[in-house]
Structure formats: C-alpha cells, structure tokens
C-alpha cells in the first residue's frame, strides 16, 4: 500500500490546527473544558484521544478524495508554517491568559 503524502500532510495540518483551537477554546469556555474532562477524566488526555482519532480519520478520508500527485515541498511548507503559527498562537495565548488571570 502506497502512502498518500498529500493526505498525510493535510491530516497533519488539520490535526495541529485542531489541537490549537481546541486548547484555546477550552481555556476560554469552562463548559467546553468540562466536556473534555468528562470525556476521559482529564482534558489533556481527551485532547490526545481527539488528536489521534482526527489524524487517522482525516488521513483515511483525504486519501480517498485527494490524488497523490503531491508537490511535496509545498505540502511540507504548509506543515512547517502551521507548526510555527500554532506554536506561536499557543505561546502568546498562554502569556496573555496568565497575565489577565493573575
């Protein structure tokens, strides 16, 4: 079985983006954080379960929809830019959250 690189890179981008949004929304919305906590007993564990499930699901779905004629450098650029932006977003958010919470 050939690995569909387009689907794999898009699944990675989707998962990283979702983890970032879920994390920020959970910090801003107590009811959403409670839902995450109730899912597994701990909100961080739930984020892990959701991210693995989403990654697998996105890959399986996208590999059926997207043809694997990837421009691998373009796909890699998307992944790297997403990682940097998501990391910065989380960093800036938690600095802001800490300063405004105190």
């Amino acid at each position: 079985m050939n690995i569909n690189i387009t689907a794999l890179s898009r699944a990675t981008v989707g998962t990283l983006t979702s983890v970032t949004f879920i994390t920020i929304i959970a910090e801003l919305s107590k009811p959403f954080k409670t839902i995450l906590t109730n899912l597994s007993g701990h909100h961080w564990v739930s984020k892990g379960i959701i991210s693995i499930s989403l990654f697998v699901l996105l890959y399986l779905l996208l590999s059926k929809v997207l043809t694997d004629k990837a421009d691998v450098q373009k796909e890699t650029k998307y992944v790297i830019v997403t990682t940097i932006l998501a990391g910065l977003a989380l960093g800036l958010f938690f600095v802001w959250h800490f300063l405004t919470e105190a």
Binding site: L16, V19, T20, T23, W44, K47, G48, S51, T83, A86, G87, L90, G91, F94, H97, F98
Partner: peptide, 9 residues
C-alpha cells in the same frame, strides 16, 4: 501549558 500542548505536535 505551552509545553503540554506543543508536545502533541
């Protein structure tokens, strides 16, 4: 907080 979430990447 940043570490536990960026680690997930």
């Amino acid at each position: 907080e940043v570490k536990e979430h960026v680690f997930l990447f």
